[in-house]
């Protein structure tokens, strides 16, 4: 067997933009739909800051980006250093240090799927204002045999692998309503460019990633979910 780095390690070492399915086109899809008059926006797993940079042109809100990887936050800080009202921090979702109901909008581009969602989604929901929105661009699966599911979960170190219906249920169970969803093309139209120096360990991981997505091309999908958190009044009725 050949040595590999973990998938997350590969992504971190590549340090390239748009390491989420659908690339820039997928980001553009939701970017046009964000509400007006936002005050505070959070992107979890901001990576190199490419999405935050784009967001800057679409809203006057204060933009916050977190990523658990120092390599990424360094890049993101650098990329956005000339932009106003922007704060990038190295943080995990579990350790988010914002006050309750601070954000109008929270974005996760293929980030939540890699976290234990029973824990991370309530955490984010708590930070969202009533009627605030969450935008998720996440991996979904259709019918997969248990062993195939395990193979994917192991390689990507996924705590869970959810279907479109599972994601919907998660959102509805966690106090969201009016969920908009749309299937998104996984592959980017624009060819990607990889850095010049990839170690053998990185190439092994990159290859395994490519092979898995060839084998499971019809079983793994990407969905865009835009969900609104229930308002205070509704909360009251529920309580």
């Amino acid at each position: 067997m050949f040595k590999m780095v973990s998938y997350q390690e590969l992504i971190s070492q590549l340090g390239i933009d748009y390491t989420h399915p659908g690339g820039k086109a997928a980001t553009d899809k939701w970017l046009k739909q964000i509400p007006k008059n936002l005050k505070n926006v959070l992107e979890v797993g901001c990576g190199t800051g490419e999405t935050l940079k784009q967001l800057r042109d679409h809203t006057t809100a204060f933009l916050y980006g977190i990523d658990n990887c120092a390599n990424m936050t360094t890049k993101a800080k650098n990329k956005t250093k000339d932009l106003h009202h922007m704060e990038i921090m190295q943080q995990n979702i579990e350790d988010l240090s914002f006050i309750h109901q601070f954000f109008d909008l929270i974005i996760s581009e293929s980030v939540l799927a890699f976290t234990p969602i029973d824990n991370s989604l309530p955490k984010l929901t708590n930070l969202l204002k009533p009627n605030g929105q969450i935008i998720l661009l996440e991996m979904t699966t259709s019918s997969l045999l248990p062993q195939d599911k395990e193979r994917i979960k192991t390689f990507y170190q996924l705590p869970q692998l959810l279907s479109k219906e599972d994601w919907l249920k998660q959102l509805l169970d966690h106090g969201y309503e009016t969920v908009y969803l749309e299937k998104v093309e996984k592959e980017s139209k624009k060819p990607i460019t990889l850095p010049q120096h990839l170690s053998m360990e990185m190439l092994q991981t990159l290859n395994e990633h490519f092979q898995l997505n060839t084998i499971y091309a019809n079983d793994l999908h990407t969905y865009l979910f835009i969900a609104k958190k229930r308002g205070e009044n509704d909360d009251h009725i529920c309580n």
Binding site: L203, L206, N207, Q211, T214
Partner: peptide
Amino acid sequence: IIRRVNPSKVFIDPLDARRGAGGYGY
């Protein structure tokens, strides 16, 4: 992945199912 090219050859880092299987590599 295209690594380099000279007037006679192109060199790629192969993405190949055999790569991880053990019979392939250096």
